[in-house]
Design a protein around this nucleic acid. Structure first.
Length: 959
RNA sequence: GCCGGAGUGGCGGAAUUGGCAGACGCGGCGGAUUCAAAAUCCGCUGGUGGCAACACCUUGUGGGUUCGAGUCCCACCUCCGGUACCA
C-alpha cells in the first residue's frame, strides 16, 4: 500500500497528529472513567447507562477487524449516552484463560501468564489507538487471582446451594438440612425429595413406607450423599467427550462432526468419567420464562428456547413379558399408544443386557459394538437408512395387553428422555422407516393419512383405539392426549411429564490454564469445600503444564495439576491429608459474571459491592416490573447465543436467588452485531489474487482492475473469472487487513466511520477495502469546511444560516438522533455527510450549524470532533467534546407558513402545490386542480375522488 | 427435513414504517490539476426510447387488499445462518 501523499497545505487534516494528541488527552484526564456511588465526583442526578461489548480473548494475533467493529459499536452509544447526560459505564476486560494460550505456551515453553500478559498489552494498545473510550481503571482479566478468587467464590455458592422445588429457587443447602430435620421432606424412590405438606397419598408418591425414609434414619455418609444429589454443583459419573490425544475432556462444541477434536484432529470417544457438573437443568423453566423479561433479538430467544428444548408429553411404563423389569418411555404422543407395535431401547440402555435372550445375545453384542464405534457423520448418513436388532424380549402394551417386540437401534439415544421409546410407525416418520425395513406391523390409529405410504403426523380422528373399558375412538389428538394421560395416571401405568433437551453443565477440564476449584478430596473420597477466607486458590507455578496425551482411551485422565508440587496438591488438616481438586474450570466460568465485577472492579471485600451493583444493574425501567434490568446494552456475536448467554443467565439467577444481585436477568438488552467476512479469491491456476481487485456480480467474482493496475500489469486481465474461497483471514490468502494498517494509512476516525458505514450493524458483510476512501474523503472535506488549510483559521461565521441550511441541519439532528437510538450508525453517517456536502458551497459555516455538526460527529469520529471543538473555542479549554451536549432538535424552527404538497393523478406524481400550512381540504383540492401540470393531465376527465392527506399529499382519482 | 433471517441499480446499502423508490458511499464516465501518473477537487450516472422537454418501465416470481404497496395478505422461487434421528 502506498504511503499517504505528503500534505502540501500547512494546516491540512493531519489525522495522525491530532489522534495522538487527543488519545493522550483522554488518557491523562481519565476522561472515560466513571465514579461509583459514594465516590468523589459521582453525580446522582444523572441516569445510568451500562454498555458492554463481549470481552475478547487476547490471542497472539491481536485485534482483527471483527474486534474493531465490536468495540466501536459500543463506544458510539457510550459516547452518545454520555452526551445525553448519563453516567456511562463502558468497561473492558480480558477472557484470558483457555486452550490457545496453553497450547502456545506448550509450543514455546513460555508460561501462559507471560504470553497472556503480552497479548493483553498488545490489544490494550490497539484499543487506545482506535480511540475507544473505556473506563480503564476497571480493566480486568479473568486470569488475575484477584478476579478468579471471586469466580471460585461463586462456585462455592453453587456448591453450598440446592434448588428448592417448592419455592422454585436456589436456597442455601443448610435450609434443606433444616427442612429434612424438621421432617418437611421424605426421601422417596430414587432419592427424590417429597414435600410432606403437599403429599396427600404419601405412600404412592414415595414408593411406600419401606422406601420412604426420614433424614434421621440415614447415616452420616448417606446424608451427605443425599445432599450431593441436590447441590447445584455436584460430582457425577457422566458420559463425556474424552480425547485421549489431548488428554482432556472436551465440550460438545469442541468436537467436530467427524468425532474428532477441533484442535489437533485427534479421535474423541464417549466414556464415563467422574466430573464436576452444574445443575443448570434446575432452571429450565425459569430460563425459558424469563426470556419474556428481556429485550433481545427474537431469533436469539428462540435459539435458547430450542436449546433448552421443553416438550410436554407422558411417561409410560411397559411391563416386560416374563420379567419383573419394566421399560419406561417418554412420548409426546401418548394418544398413539394403541398404534405402538414395537419398542426400541438405545444400544447403551441399561436394560439391554438384562432383556436380551441367549438366542439374540451375539447379534445384540455385535450391533452394540458397531454402534458405539460409529461417528456422528455415519449416524447422520444412517438417518435415512435405519439399523437395529431384535433383543428377543417382548413388552406388554398397557392399553391393550398386546405383546410387542423390543429392539435396540441407534436412532434412539441415551441422552434424551429415558433412552427408550414406544414406536408408532403409523404416526412417526422414523418409526415408519424402521418398521418398513424390518417388516414390523403398522397400525393406523389416527385417520387422515395413508399410512401404507408414509407416516401421518397431523391431527385427525382417533381410530382402532379401544380395549376393555378404554376407548379413544372419535376423539381428536389433543383430546385423546388428555384422556389417555388421565387413564395412565389412574391405572398407575404412567403420568404426564415434561422433558428437556438441556443437560447439566459439564464443568471440569483436564487443563492447566483455568480456574482451580476451591475443593479438597479426603482419603475416603469425601468432598470438602474450602472456606471463603481461603480464597483464592492460586494456580501453582509449574514447569510442565502440558496435558498428558495417551494412546489407551480407557486410561485414567491425568490432569496437569496432578504434577503440581506436593506443597500445592496436598493440604493437611487436623492430621488428615487432603488432595486438591486437580481439574480446572472451563473457559466459560470467568465470563459468567464479569459484567458484575465491572460495577466494582477494585473491591477486595466482596465480588461486587451492594450499592455499586444496585446502581449499575438496576435500570429505571426495571422498577416497573416489565423489564429485567441488568446491562442496558450488551453487544456481541450470535455465536454466543446459547452457551455463554445461557451459562451467564444461570449463574446470575443463582446469585439472584441467594440475594447477591438485584435483577433476575443479567443483560436487559442484547444486540448481535454481524461478522465481517473476509473472502479470498483464486484464479484458474489456483493462485490467490488480491482480493481488492475482485468484483462480484451475480455470484461470479471476476478480476476488475483499476486504471493503475491495468497500466502496470499485462498479466492480470479485467473480467478474468476467479473462484471464491471461504478461507480464514490471513496473509497467505491475500485478503487480510489489520486495524493497525488502516489506522496508519487513514487514521482511526476513518476506520471507525468505515466499519460503521459498511452496512447495518446486525448484518454480516464483506470487508470491502476499496470503499474506505469514501469516508476518508468525508473527513477531509469536513476539515476543509471548518479550517482554512493555508492559514489554519476557523472558517466559521456568527451569521445565521439560510432557511434551507437551517432546515437541513435540524432534519439532520433528528435523523442522527433517531439513528443513534436505533443503532443505525450507517444512516447517521450518511446524514452527516449530506449536511457536510451542503456546506461545501458556502464560504463560512454558520456558528449554529457548527455547534450541531461537531457534537454529532463526536461519538463516531471522536478525534477530529475534539480538535474542531477545541478550535471552535466556545467552551472552556481542555473540556472534551465528550462532555458537550447533544444538539437539540427543534422542530419549531422548521415550521413554515406554507407547505409544499406533491399532487398525484391516479397515484402518479404530476405536480406540486404550495399552500398555506393551515389550508383546509377544500383549499388544497382547489389548488391541486389548478396546478399547471395537473390540469394538463386531467384534460377534461372527470375527477371521481380526491384524497387529501394533510401535510403529505393530494391524490386525484380520475377515469 | 425442521427452525430462523434476507432478496431493492454494476456494488455496499437508504426509504420518516402504506405516500415523490434508489439518500449516502464505492465503482464507472467526463472534466480540472499534473510533463505524466497517483492523490485530490468539480460534474454526470437505475433501465429503455428520444437531439430535447419528456414518456414508459423498475424493489426475487405470481396473485390479492388499497386512491396509492419495496413496505400489508396468500402462494412460490433463490440465497445465507442455526440445528439435526429430541420420540
Amino acid at each position: 500500500m502506498n504511503a499517504p501523499a505528503p500534505e502540501s497545505k500547512p494546516h491540512a487534516y493531519d489525522f495522525a497528529a491530532l489522534e495522538a494528541k487527543w488519545q493522550a488527552h483522554w488518557e491523562a484526564e481519565n476522561t472515560f472513567a466513571v465514579p461509583n456511588p459514594g465516590d468523589a465526583g459521582f453525580n446522582a442526578d444523572r441516569p445510568k447507562f451500562y454498555v458492554l461489548a463481549m470481552f475478547p480473548y487476547p490471542s497472539g494475533a491481536g485485534m482483527h477487524m471483527g474486534h474493531a467493529l465490536n468495540y466501536t459499536s459500543t463506544d458510539i452509544p457510550a459516547r452518545y449516552q454520555r452526551m445525553r447526560g448519563k453516567n456511562v459505564l463502558h468497561p473492558i476486560g480480558y477472557d484470558a484463560f483457555g486452550l490457545p494460550a496453553e497450547q502456545y505456551a506448550v509450543e514455546t515453553g513460555t508460561h501462559p501468564a507471560v504470553t497472556t500478559q503480552k497479548n493483553i498489552d498488545h490489544i490494550t494498545h490497539q484499543f487506545k489507538k482506535l480511540g475507544i473510550g473505556f473506563d480503564w481503571p476497571r480493566e480486568l482479566s479473568t486470569t488475575d487471582p484477584d478476579y478468579y478468587r471471586w469466580t471460585q467464590w461463586v462456585f462455592l455458592k453453587l456448591y453450598e446451594s440446592y434448588f428448592d422445588p417448592i419455592e422454585n429457587k436456589a436456597l442455601p443447602i443448610d435450609q434443606l438440612v433444616a427442612k429434612l430435620q424438621g421432617e418437611d421432606y421424605y426421601v422417596g424412590i430414587d432419592g427424590q425429595l417429597v414435600y410432606s405438606g403437599i403429599a396427600e397419598d404419601l405412600d404412592a408418591i414415595t414408593g411406600g413406607p419401606l422406601t420412604a425414609r426420614k433424614w434421621h434414619s440415614l447415616d452420616a455418609d448417606q446424608q451427605s450423599r443425599l445432599l450431593d444429589e441436590y447441590r447445584l454443583a455436584y460430582m457425577a459419573d457422566v458420559e463425556v467427550n474424552w480425547c485421549p490425544g489431548l488428554g482432556t475432556v472436551l465440550a460438545n462444541e469442541e468436537v467436530t462432526n467427524e468425532g474428532r477434536s477441533e484442535r489437533g484432529n485427534f479421535p474423541v470417544v464417549k466414556r464415563p468419567l467422574k466430573q464436576w457438573m452444574l445443575r443448570i437443568t434446575a432452571y429450565n423453566d425459569r430460563l425459558i420464562d424469563d426470556l419474556d423479561l428481556v429485550d433481545w433479538p427474537e431469533p436469539v430467544k428462540l435459539l435458547q428456547r430450542n436449546w433448552i428444548g421443553k416438550s410436554r408429553g407422558a411417561q409410560v411404563d411397559f411391563a416386560v413379558d416374563g420379567s419383573d423389569e419394566k421399560i419406561t418411555v417418554f412420548t409426546t404422543r401418548p394418544d398413539t399408544l394403541f398404534g405402538a407395535t414395537y419398542m426400541v431401547l438405545a444400544p447403551e440402555h441399561e436394560l439391554v443386557d438384562v432383556l436380551t435372550t441367549d438366542a439374540q445375545r451375539d447379534a445384540v453384542d455385535a450391533y452394540r459394538k458397531q454402534a458405539g464405534e460409529k461417528t456422528s457423520v455415519e449416524r447422520q448418513q444412517d438417518a435415512k437408512e435405519k439399523t437395529g436388532v431384535f433383543t428377543g424380549a417382548y413388552a406388554i402394551n398397557p392399553v391393550n395387553d398386546e405383546k410387542i417386540p423390543v429392539w435396540i437401534a441407534d436412532y434412539v439415544m441415551t441422552g434424551y428422555g429415558t433412552g427408550a421409546i414406544m414406536a408408532v410407525p403409523a404416526h412417526d416418520e422414523r418409526d415408519f422407516a424402521f418398521a418398513t425395513k424390518f417388516g414390523i406391523p403398522i397400525v393406523e390409529v389416527i385417520s387422515g393419512g395413508d399410512v401404507t405410504r408414509a407416516a401421518f403426523t397431523g391431527n385427525g380422528e382417533l381410530a382402532n383405539s379401544s380395549h376393555g373399558g378404554l376407548t379413544l375412538d372419535g376423539l381428536d389428538v389433543p383430546a385423546a392426549k388428555e384422556h389417555i394421560i388421565a387413564w395412565l395416571e389412574t391405572h398407575g401405568h404412567g403420568k404426564a411429564t415434561t422433558n428437556y433437551k438441556l443437560r447439566d453443565w459439564l464443568f471440569s477440564r483436564q487443563r492447566y490454564w483455568g480456574e482451580p476449584f476451591p475443593i479438597l478430596h479426603g482419603p475416603n473420597d469425601e468432598i470438602v469445600a474450602l472456606d471463603e477466607s481461603e480464597l483464592p486458590v492460586e494456580l501453582p507455578e509449574m514447569e510442565d503444564f502440558k496435558p498428558t496425551a495417551m494412546d489407551d482411551p480407557d486410561a485414567p485422565p491425568r490432569p496437569p495439576l496432578g504434577r503440581a508440587p506436593d506443597s500445592w496438591r496436598v493440604v493437611e488438616r487436623d492430621g488428615v491429608r487432603y488432595t486438591r481438586e486437580l481439574n480446572t474450570m472451563p473457559q466459560w466460568a470467568g465470563s459468567c459474571w464479569y459484567y458484575l465485577r465491572f460495577c466494582d472492579a477494585g473491591n477486595d471485600q466482596t465480588f461486587v459491592g451492594r450499592d455499586a451493583e444496585k446502581y449499575w444493574m438496576v435500570s429505571e425501567k426495571s422498577s416497573g416490573g416489565h423489564h429485567a434490568g441488568g446491562v442496558d446494552l450488551y453487544v456481541g456475536g450470535v455465536e454466543h447465543a446459547v452457551l455463554h448467554l445461557l451459562y451467564a443467565r444461570f449463574w446470575h439467577k443463582v446469585l439472584y436467588d441467594l440475594g447477591h444481585v438485584s435483577t433476575p436477568e443479567p443483560f436487559g438488552k442484547l444486540f448481535n452485531q454481524g461478522y465481517i467476512q473476509e473472502d479470498a479469491f483464486k484464479d484458474e491456476r489456483g493462485i490467490y489474487v488480491d482480493a481488492f481487485a475482485v468484483v462480484d456480480e451475480h455470484g461470479t467474482p471476476a478480476m476488475q482492475l483499476d486504471r493503475r493496475q491495468r497500466a502496470e500489469s499485462s498479466f492480470f486481465v479485467d473480467g478474468k473469472p476467479v473462484q471464491r474461497v471461504f478461507g480464514k483471514m490471513g496473509k497467505s490468502l491475500k485478503n487480510s487487513v489489520t486495524p493497525d494498517e488502516v489506522i496508519a494509512q487513514y487514521g482511526s476516525d476513518t476506520l471507525r466511520l468505515f466499519l460503521m458505514y459498511l452496512g447495518p450493524l446486525d448484518q454480516s458483510k464483506p470487508w470491502n477495502q476499496q470503499d474506505i476512501v469514501g469516508v476518508h474523503r468525508f473527513l477531509n472535506r469536513l476539515w476543509r469546511n471548518f479550517v482554512d488549510e493555508d492559514t489554519g483559521q476557523l472558517r466559521v461565521t456568527r451569521d445565521n444560516p439560510s432557511d434551507e441550511l437551517l432546515r437541513l441541519t435540524h432534519r439532520t439532528i433528528q435523523r442522527v438522533t433517531d439513528a443513534m437510538e436505533g443503532m443505525q450508525f450507517n444512516v447517521a453517517i450518511a446524514a452527516l455527510i449530506e449536511l457536510n456536502n451542503a456546506l461545501v458551497s458556502i464560504d463560512e459555516v454558520p456558528h449554529s450549524v457548527a455547534l450541531a455538526i461537531v457534537p454529532m460527529l463526536a461519538p463516531l469520529a471522536p478525534h477530529i470532533a475534539e480538535e474542531l471543538w477545541e478550535k471552535l473555542g466556545h467552551v472552556a479549554p481542555h473540556t472534551s467534546v465528550a462532555d458537550a451536549e447533544w444538539p437539540e432538535y427543534r422542530p419549531e424552527l422548521l415550521v413554515s407558513d406554507t407547505v409544499e404538497l406533491p399532487v398525484q393523478v391516479n397515484g402518479k406524481l404530476r405536480g406540486k402545490v404550495t399552500v398555506p400550512a393551515d389550508a383546509d381540504q377544500a383549499d388544497i383540492e382547489e389548488a391541486a386542480k389548478a396546478e399547471e401540470n395537473v390540469a394538463l393531465h386531467l384534460q377534461g376527465k372527470a375527477i371521481r375522488k380526491v384524497i387529501v392527506i394533510p401535510k403529505k399529499l393530494v391524490n386525484l382519482v380520475v377515469g
